[in-house]
Design a binder for these strands. Structure first.
Length: 296
DNA sequence: CCGATTACCTGCACGC
DNA sequence: TGCGTGCAGGTAATCG
């Protein structure tokens, strides 16, 4: 499920545990996820201190005091779980009984913080569409990240920027917004949500909102605003749910949002005054949800 | 340059 | 209850 906001929420959840901590034990419990683990995966990470936890699009980056940067992708079903030692645990008897090894726990990081606090970070991924790779240099130059487009966070993505990205594009808006080379981090859910907020049809030819007319300028501005706000709102929702989220079962990953259109086929359009209903169509083999009444 | 299709893998909801 | 079917938020490769 993870799109950019979920990955950012995971990053914020892991940050306090990982940043400044030393990886005292690393273990990959199978040879591969979507891709084989890098050569000497555990060996090269063990003993390293994590200096920073970053994110680019839907990728997490774990920076070390030396050696490669670890690039993690959650795929469709990946999640992290944090297990901390209870205060009454016997020192040294690390997670002996508490640590229940769940199915699909593929990677384990045992860490010790600068203060000497121990924790275990577990990567779980039933479908194994996730992956972990090494970037030997700057992660932005890694083939997996090099071609990514603009982040929809912050202010970089404005109407003019979006118009320049969509100019001359003949593909439907839905496909263009899912293209990671243009905007990095939007996925199937938030594309539907952003198009609904902007009142634009997912079937619209992308280039038609990138013209020089007043109307086109307004539409590209509206869509850029919709994208930024839907992402910002989702991150805020994730952040506010993070405490409870970690508290309940220790896992970080999916959290429930309420969506305006996603997975709401047949329901009334939530736009005030709109009498339309949400439809589900398939574009590029994937579900799109929209209201044909108010999205043109 | 496009879009559509398939593949990767497991889990789950659904209908019979 | 069990079984077959289809579907799932990710990226990438292949084919017309």
């Amino acid at each position: 499920m993870p799109e950019l906001p979920e990955v950012e929420t995971v990053r914020r959840g892991l940050q306090p545990v990982l940043e400044g901590a030393r990886l005292v034990h690393v273990e990959a419990r199978r040879p591969d996820l979507r891709f084989p683990f890098p050569e000497r995966f555990a060996k090269r990470l063990t003993g390293r201190t994590v200096t920073a936890l970053g994110r680019r699009a839907k990728y997490l980056t774990m920076h070390m005091d030396e050696g490669p940067v670890l690039i993690c992708h959650l795929g469709m079903s990946g999640s992290f779980r944090i297990e901390t030692a209870d205060a009454d645990d016997v020192p040294g008897a690390f997670h002996h009984e508490r640590s229940k090894s769940a199915a699909h726990d593929h990677v384990v990081f045992d860490v010790v913080s600068a203060k000497g606090e121990r924790a275990r970070v577990v990567f779980n991924d039933p479908r194994r569409f996730g992956f972990m790779l090494f970037a030997e240099g700057a992660p932005d130059t890694h083939p997996m990240l090099a071609g990514l487009g603009v982040e929809p966070t912050g202010n970089a993505l404005d109407g003019a920027m979006l118009a320049s990205l969509l100019k001359d594009r003949r593909s439907p808006l839905k496909a263009a917004l899912l293209d990671q080379r243009l905007i990095a981090g939007l996925g199937n859910i938030y594309v539907s949500e952003a198009l609904w907020r902007a009142g634009l049809s997912p079937l619209r030819e992308a280039g038609t909102i990138a013209g020089s007319t007043k109307k086109a300028k307004q539409q590209s501005e509206d869509l850029a605003q919709a994208i930024r706000s839907v992402i910002a709102d989702a991150i805020a929702a994730g952040g506010s749910s993070l405490r409870d989220y970690v508290h309940t079962d220790g896992s970080l990953g999916y959290f429930q949002h309420s969506f305006a259109v996603y997975d709401r086929e047949g329901e009334s359009c939530p736009k005030p005054g709109c009498r339309g209903h949400i439809e589900r169509i398939v574009q590029s083999g994937r579900s799109t949800f929209y209201c044909r009444t108010c999205q043109r």
